[in-house]
Write a protein that binds this DNA or RNA. Structure first.
Lengths: 342, 342
DNA sequence: AATTAATTCGGAAACGTTTCCATGACTATT
DNA sequence: AATAGTCATGGAAACGTTTCCGAATTAATT
């Protein structure tokens, strides 16, 4: 337990040496004889001395730690990102501390505001939305930042590396649904402010939109999917396909539809976005667009760590990944299946 | 961007005051006139001064941050814990930094070894296993620790609060499977070292165990479940029920069985542990034991924060939560169903 | 108007390290 | 044996804050 009052000076006294020597011993620095080193380490052990890292870092500056700020841990899309970030960071010898902002934009801003308290060398952030404040805070921040851009368009003058998905993820979905002959296509997801490109793709793909086929829930969750299913079922004229804003919603939809006796894909086709692991364990398996989370996270982390290590200023990178549609059972054509099924 | 070389002294010079006054201004301390305060804050703004928090904490000691160390973020059981911890911490005004040890015992030990580098006031750890080193490190650690004890028995002299699940979670599963008339019950999960109680319950419930009905994979993952299914299917004498070490494994089993044309629960019943969200979105829905993650996490966090705030020494709490079996479709009795289905 | 009390402020010590620099002891070279 | 060169070591400065304490200014009391 030791209330940790023991300082380097206590060790020095016990070992009968100067504090400089103690420092050399515990840091494996050159210029100390093996025997004094041993003597010092014995004293360290005896007193249970632990260097105060605040004092250490006061000179050192580097902490070899980076922060990863993610919105909602309950969305299974996040672990994929987190895992990938950990891998790369470990390879560079960095530790990752993950901050869960819980889908709360306020706490995202708060985090940026006192990012210094985290004692990290850099930050990877996956913002929910991009209010002007966020941009200002990023630009004012005094440490390297990588942004994983999840669906939103960013101003070009943000002083951070940005790795993003190009927006056609929704376009892919819509083109696919149209190509398999669906004509009444609905949308279900969070309000469009959250990831607006997702919904814009829906609007863009249709000549005219029927507002009754659009369901906005509170978030991208299973519950939203279930509520959306209830909503669609009560329409006099049901859709024959639904573009789900993400896979959680898709799963929620599918599940509720099954409970209600509606067949997928025969009655309604469903396609989600994220290519979440969940898509492969439902029955039927759900078609989805992979947003390449692993790759995106990898690049974002590499950019950040290179910026940290090389102390790069300016010249911020912009990288885009193309999404990839993976067709599964939930969106098979009713007549014949010419698509490749995974 | 500012390379953050600007110090409190620069601000003092610009504002034409002493550094003590600057400190008072930025910390809202008493003993400063409104107008000097305003003047100082203007200087702070102009220079973009950000206090060096290493220097601050050198005196202050408290960081109002706690760490949460979790094994495998890809296991959907974790988010439940994390979410609950965040809620409580926020209520107390603390930030949570999450450390993912990726199922690696080495990195768990490493974390404890240099926990100081994280600059947190306390730690909540969900250990994978309990080698002696871990206990030693915990006892030597110089900050409050709460352990969320996930299946393993702990020595009583660990100097930390411990919130654990009482072990009968596996017993519940076995008694249930036996009660619905299954006679050849198998086990699938990670090697018994990982969470040994899970497997011991299996052994205890049976008069004699048939080693061929036990499958140990690498971990508690979907893949392990799938591989286990392949294994069981190839037995000359298949089991009629499987106790899955956790829900990920259960889902993996179910999915692969379905691909192989084996009916659940008619041919094989499956029961998992964790009561993961996944259990309700598969077809059939999977019976599982809730380990009360939310409640456990809540108590663990409260104990930790109280210990921090009140600077309690000694008197370590031991809290146990009882698991709860939730019967769903994957373990219905073949003859009639008398159980309550959720 | 004179004394006392209350504010406001700056200097300097303290927090616990790392590291530069000077010193002294020891080894190697001639 | 004398000089040069290594090596080990401790003292002290530096890192950037907060805070104690005394001084100086202002306000309040008589």
């Amino acid at each position: 337990m030791g209330t940790h009052k023991v300082t380097i000076e206590d060790v020095a006294t016990l070992a009968g040496v100067g504090i400089a020597t103690v420092s050399r011993a515990i840091n494996n620095t050159d210029g100390i004889s093996p025997k004094t080193k041993e003597k010092v380490l014995a004293a360290v052990e005896e007193l249970g001395f632990i260097p105060n890292s605040f004092a250490q870092n006061l000179k050192f500056r580097q902490t070899k730690q980076i922060a990863l700020a993610v919105p909602d841990i309950r969305n299974a899309f996040i672990p994929e990102i987190a895992y990938s970030v950990e891998q790369v960071a470990k390879h560079y010898g960095y530790r990752v501390v993950q901050i869960n902002t819980l889908g709360n934009i306020r706490s995202e801003l708060e985090l940026l505001r006192d990012i210094k308290k985290l004692h990290v060398d850099g930050l990877i952030i996956l913002p929910l939305a991009y209010p002007k404040t966020l941009k200002d805070l990023i630009n004012k921040a005094s440490l390297p930042i990588s942004i994983i851009n999840y669906g939103k368009t960013l101003d070009n003058d943000v002083k951070a590396d940005i790795v993003s998905l190009s927006t056609p993820e929704g376009k892919l979905v819509m083109e696919h649904l149209i190509s398999i002959g669906r004509t009444r296509i609905g949308y279900a997801g969070a309000p469009k402010e959250i990831i607006e490109e997702r919904f814009f793709a829906y609007e863009d793909a249709l000549d005219q939109i029927d507002r009754s086929l659009v369901y906005f829930g509170d978030d991208f969750s299973l519950q939203t999917g279930a509520k959306a299913a209830d909503y669609f079922v009560n329409l006099t004229h049901m859709p024959d396909a639904i573009y789900a804003g993400n896979d959680m919603v898709a799963v929620g939809l599918l599940n509720r539809f099954k409970e209600l006796g509606i067949r997928v894909p025969e009655d309604i086709a469903i396609v989600g976005v994220d290519n979440n692991l969940l898509c492969t364990i439902t029955t039927p398996k759900i078609s989805s667009v992979s947003i390449m989370g692993t790759e995106v996270a990898k690049v974002a982390t590499e950019l950040l760590l290179e910026r940290i290590e090389e102390q790069k200023k300016g010249v911020f990178e912009r990288v885009q990944f193309e999404p990839r549609l993976i067709v599964r059972e939930s969106s098979l054509s009713r007549t014949r299946s010419t698509q490749h099924i995974e």
